[in-house]
Simulated scan of single mutants.
Amino acid sequence: MTASARTLALDIAAPLALFYGLRAAGAGDVPALVVGAVPPALNVLVTAIRDRSVEALAIGVLFGTVLGVLGALLGGGPRELLARGAWFSAPAGLWALATLRRPRPLCYEVTRAVMPRRAALMDRLWDTDERFRAAWRTITICWGLATLVDSAIRVVMAYGLPVALVPALDTVLTIVTIVVLQVPTHLLIRRTGHWHSVFGPLRRPGHAR
């Protein structure tokens, strides 16, 4: 199973299936949400063991899950579990903006990490092209601010909407946020003239130029 397929299955499909399946079977909201939170946490742990490293974003996912579970089990009810996404996304957005003060911003580093075959090229462009560096800083601002807005929306949904609706809407919000943020990401890199090099198909060895 590829990393993207595993993420889709464990972080999106499994929590929804478990929550709505358990509720249909008569389980309460808290048990259903607790069980539904297990697959994403397992995905983080399996990835950390396999790669022998733990990324800050993965720690945030696990931390938010643990906080939500503890809050629910200590009497807070299901809404603390529903809000766990905000407890992750808000710090993630702030961290993204904070990395603007570092030599390389978060969005550049994450993209470089998930596309290792482009890493050397991206490093070369980073070192030689100011427009390329400025584009990634702007992209990181877009993702950081959007993540903070995403967090605020999740809090409103978690505490203001019927419990049964929130898991599905959370998933929709995640997908919409990611899809919408592709627009400034790809547009800004295209404006640098390096979109094909970074996001285009890889040339096969020996392929004619």
Rank of each mutant, 00 (worst) to 15 (best):
W87K: 01
T128K: 10
V110Q: 03
T7C: 02
G60V: 01
D170V: 06
A48K: 13
A208W: 01
L8V: 12
A37N: 08
A13E: 00
T2E: 10
A146K: 00
P184D: 10
A9Q: 07
F199D: 00
F132P: 13
D11L: 00
A113W: 12
A41V: 02
H194L: 02
L10C: 07
S53G: 08
A13Y: 10
R117K: 12
V156N: 03
A9W: 15
A119K: 07
F88L: 12
V149M: 07
A17K: 04
P201L: 04
W143C: 01
V46W: 15
T185Q: 09
Q182V: 09
A13N: 02
G75I: 12
G93S: 10
R118N: 13
R6G: 02
G76M: 09
P167Q: 04
M122C: 08
R131H: 14
G71Y: 15
L57F: 14
M157T: 03
R191D: 01
M115T: 08
A9Y: 13
F199W: 13
V114I: 15
A58H: 15
A9K: 01
T65E: 06
L94Y: 03
M157D: 02
R23S: 04
L81G: 07
W126C: 02
Q182C: 11
L74K: 05
V35M: 09
A58L: 03
R137Q: 12
A146W: 00
H207F: 05
V114M: 10
L70F: 14
T7Y: 14
F132A: 06
D150N: 10
P31H: 08
